[in-house]
Design a protein around this nucleic acid. Sequence first.
DNA 1: ACAACTCCTTTCACATTTCAAGGAAAATCC
DNA 2: GGATTTTCCTTGAAATGTGAAAGGAGTTGT
Lengths: 137, 137
Amino acid sequence: MLDATDKKILEELSKNARITMKELGEKVHLTGQAASSRVIKLEEEGIIEGYTIQLNERKIGYPVHSFINIYTKHIQHQPYLSFLGNQSEYIINNYKISGEGCYLLECKFPSNEVLDHFLTQLNKYVNYKLSIVINNK
Amino acid sequence: MLDATDKKILEELSKNARITMKELGEKVHLTGQAASSRVIKLEEEGIIEGYTIQLNERKIGYPVHSFINIYTKHIQHQPYLSFLGNQSEYIINNYKISGEGCYLLECKFPSNEVLDHFLTQLNKYVNYKLSIVINNK
DNA sequence: ACAACTCCTTTCACATTTCAAGGAAAATCC
DNA sequence: GGATTTTCCTTGAAATGTGAAAGGAGTTGT
């Protein structure tokens, strides 16, 4: 399904998704047009789901990165999920998991004070265990 | 530091990082040239760290997504970290955390069998608690 | 051997980007 | 307050990239 050229294309686009098709072509020994049509095919097949930017969250005011394990005994998760909907500024991902708790909530905050306030509200809906990210090496 | 136009630019690029500068300019009521120079500035300031693709990991052969809390009593983390270096095919992120354990390891695997084999090797270096991602809603 | 298919290249018209020059508005300085 | 500097934008023109069409080479099936 994916040949070596496709893999190289995905690798190059992962490193720089704004590369021109001409340059991408040079990297994989194709013309720009051939590279472009492979990329279009990868998009159509749903292998490439989108193009996005990597942001420095610290520099845009969200220096606190955390993972929160969510525990609840309630059958109804909807109140918790609705709460998240109202807090989307802080939410990166809410993974439904099997293992430690029901969900693993990945969030970002401007400060520990905001995190504290968030946790206070969160605790109305669920129990949790908090992990703060120190770095990512 | 960031005005409303910059924020809109970041938002649009998050949604589609391959948009042309001309189109981006239209969305923020600027010429392509003006949009482009703002983007260059955001890059130089380190706010935009890069451009990348969103991949469908399932379709490229990594349907199993997991988070693994890593626990160790050893002072030396190097053997564990070296092990990760050899397993980079499967590693998405290794967050150093304060909270549940020492690290939160985010990984992807082709199958439960490969995950099982990975865990067996991992257990030579550290203890762990496994969470499998069911979905992300 | 021929037809059908896939995947590539070439060509060319058109769109975008880049670079330079210049203008308007705001900020700074005296 | 008025002159100067700075910032941020626009315009225009040249360089570069893209997309569509036509066609060629290699592969597969009959």
